[in-house]
């Protein structure tokens, strides 16, 4: 047994993974068949449940194999940014819980958290993803701020994708209270919240991007890498793909390098995979919504 070097900072920042030479060789040179029986463009099974956190306006818990993420969205009124007076905003916050690995204790997970948080911000910046003017309440004075808080509970590889799917699901379920501007008392507007707690509106999340991580291993690349595969790869790309198949952000990850040609082909594959993932996710969310209020299972499995 040899200890695989920590090639990637970030997603595989976790307890060292032990891989034998044979295992490494299989991951590097195997055909279109991976250790767990998947092909290169297959995802592992995903468990998704929304509405688990009653203190949040929207929430979801997503488990992709051993990667576990809980997202809560809280809605608050604030004044809009001076450069964007007609828009509300989304604020992302990622917290790597020490439950995932003792390395995250204290401020240990902050680097990884910031990395994921920054990339999410980048991918939501494009005007195509979400209509932020829907969040405006009173031009230049009041707007809704959506605090998207992401709690990483376990790391089992492919964190970016897991987080993005959970965020999209949480935003899909987020209920924004109806609000009216009642009177203008001089300069001070008086805002009136609807008394009916069910009188809410929802964001259009159709085009919210999903992140697709492609890892380059040997001469090929694959989606949804396991921690072992992340260990064997020296580089990859994370691509944010919106519902309309548009790429809204790209970042190369890892310490290795990529040939421009393979990069282009990876981007193409990512946008196709992303479109499928988006479609399936939206379908499942709709199914869960129409199924009505069933007993929440949550962590009681």
């Amino acid at each position: 047994m040899s200890i695989a070097p920590q090639l990637l900072r970030g997603p595989s920042l976790m307890a060292e993974i032990l891989l034998s030479e044979a295992e490494k060789a299989f991951i590097h040179h195997g055909d279109d068949l991976r250790c767990d029986g998947r092909t290169r463009l297959d995802y592992r099974p995903i468990i998704l449940e929304t509405g688990l956190v009653s203190n949040a306006s929207g929430s979801s818990r997503l488990r992709l194999a051993n990667s576990d993420v809980l997202v809560g969205v809280k809605v608050e009124l604030a004044s809009p940014l001076s450069e964007k007076p007609l828009e509300g905003r989304l604020e992302f916050f990622v917290d790597c819980s020490a439950n995932a690995t003792p390395e995250f204790e204290g401020r240990g997970g902050e680097d990884l958290a910031n990395e994921i948080c920054r990339f999410l911000q980048m991918s939501y910046m494009s005007g195509d993803t979400i209509n932020l003017s829907e969040l405006s309440v009173l031009a230049g004075q009041q707007c809704w701020v959506l605090y998207v808080d992401i709690l990483i509970l376990e790391c089992g590889g492919n964190l970016y994708d897991t987080v993005s799917l959970a965020v999209k699901s949480a935003l899909y379920t987020t209920q924004i209270p109806s609000i009216k501007v009642a009177t203008m008392d001089g300069d001070q507007p008086e805002l009136e919240l609807s008394e009916d707690p069910y009188d809410t509106k929802r964001l259009n999340t159709q085009n919210v991007p999903c992140l697709v991580t492609l890892m380059k291993i040997g001469n090929h690349y694959l989606v949804d890498p396991t921690p072992e595969e992340e260990c064997c790869s020296s580089s990859g790309v994370v691509v944010a793909v919106s519902g309309s198949k548009k790429i809204t952000a790209v970042r190369k990850i890892g310490s290795g390098s990529l040939h421009p040609e393979s990069l282009v082909s990876m981007l193409k594959t990512a946008s196709e995979v992303g479109a499928v993932v988006n479609k399936i996710l939206m379908k499942k969310l709709l199914e869960e919504e129409t199924a009505g209020k069933t007993q929440k299972v949550g962590f009681m499995r």
Partner: peptide
């Protein structure tokens, strides 16, 4: 380590 989720309250 005691930690509270930011959305817990």
């Amino acid at each position: 380590q005691y930690s509270t989720a930011t959305f817990s309250m």
